[in-house]
Design a protein around this nucleic acid. Structure first.
Lengths: 218, 218
DNA sequence: CGAGCAATATTGTTCAACAACTTTGTTTCC
DNA sequence: GGAAACAAAGTTGTTGAACAATATTGCTCG
């Protein structure tokens, strides 16, 4: 792959991992030096990530890590409901992606077992597994464009999670819910699974919005 | 706005208008000179359009105008059905975007009236109006992310249309169908409108796929 | 005619410089 | 003291040239 492709991926990972706080500004020269590339090269990577919604670019003021607002969260969940529920509703249990969903659920359950009460890092691993579950779910639709759109949405949502400092409440309740969605889909069919998934997403949105509201009070 | 922002927009418009045939390669130096900008600046614009799916970038082989395959068309229509039908289904007739839909239908009807049998340019105007109708329809959902995704989808689909040299069969049947979708939505409600829209999209997909199939024979 | 190789052209990346703009800090005036 | 005007500093935007890395073309030779 390209250097700038790898560069964009590396930056993407760092941002998702919370190396830079949402909203913080990224200096071109500083980051270019940090990665040992020229400013021009870094700019191309920046542009790619801006298109994906991870960075925000304001002319002559540079790029900052996106910092989703409440409106953004609402929008993201609306899109999630549409994409995920439709994908699941039209799917067959024999689809190979089902196995990836299964694996993601197992991984999440394992990490959640290990997690101490406030071990941010482990809870974030739970979050990663949860996200892998939903990415796999979307890939049930076999639609590259839908998958890509969803990937961008998920990355943005992750930034919203980073703003909240109680990762446990964000991830723990949903390990069991993922399992429920999967089991319902397998035993009671696509329609029941999609309904379960819709409930999941409504509740998840409520948790995130609640955390945001509390944040703005403080 | 930025120079590169304007540059990307200008390029975008030219591509959508068919200034470069789908699949044709775009030389960096030639285009940079044509627009009177440096290669580096052009590259940033290229990257933006690649992210939107309008250009295809292959390392060390440069960028070409995307040339949607049959699989791409199928994928695009799947995404269209999901986004458009959901948007319409959850909408109210009082939404301001309804007026934009109305205007687009009127414009399409007017252009179709003027069009001679094989006047490519006028039929393309009909296509633009048709597309404006669907963009307005998606904006019923008041979701920036959905709107953005749909905009990219529509641009890609337009490239598929450019590959087909019978613009009339592509656009003419759908002027009346747009009208039908709008009227059904207004008189018989969201659910009936969404059903009408779904039929529309299925038929439109069939027309495009048929044209592609005939193309591959020749 | 085809394989291998050299020549050519294009893209990938860097660097240095300057222009355009924003932000910050200072001065001035009320 | 506070607000407006202005100067200074810092960052981003864009350019042009240069060289490296890779793909394509054309040629030679068997």
């Amino acid at each position: 792959m390209n250097q700038q492709g790898m560069l964009a991926d590396a930056l993407r990972q760092q941002i998702i991992d919370g190396a830079f706080a949402p909203g913080s500004r990224l200096s071109e020269s500083a980051i270019a030096e940090h990665f040992g590339v020229a400013r021009n090269t870094l700019r191309e990577a920046f542009r790619a990530l801006s298109e994906q919604g991870l960075l925000e670019h304001v002319p002559h003021r540079g790029v900052s890590v996106a910092s989703p607002s409440i409106a953004d969260v609402i929008d993201i969940y609306r899109a999630r409901r549409i994409i995920e529920c439709t994908a699941l509703l039209h799917s067959e249990p024999e689809h190979p992606a089902v196995q990836r969903m299964e694996e993601a659920v197992v991984a999440a359950e394992a990490s959640a077992q290990d997690a101490l009460l406030d071990d941010t890092e482990t809870w974030r691993a739970v979050g990663s597994a949860n996200m892998a579950f939903h990415v796999a779910l979307v890939s049930l639709a076999d639609s590259p464009r839908l998958a890509r759109t969803y990937r961008d949405l998920a990355a943005e949502l992750r930034l919203a999670f980073l703003k909240i400092d109680d990762p446990r409440s964000l991830h723990e309740p949903f390990v069991r819910k993922n399992r429920a969605v999967l089991d319902t889909f397998l035993t009671r069919g696509a329609q029941a699974g999609a309904a379960e998934l819709e409930r999941y997403l409504v509740q998840s949105e409520r948790v995130v919005l609640g955390a945001f509201a509390r944040m703005q009070l403080a």
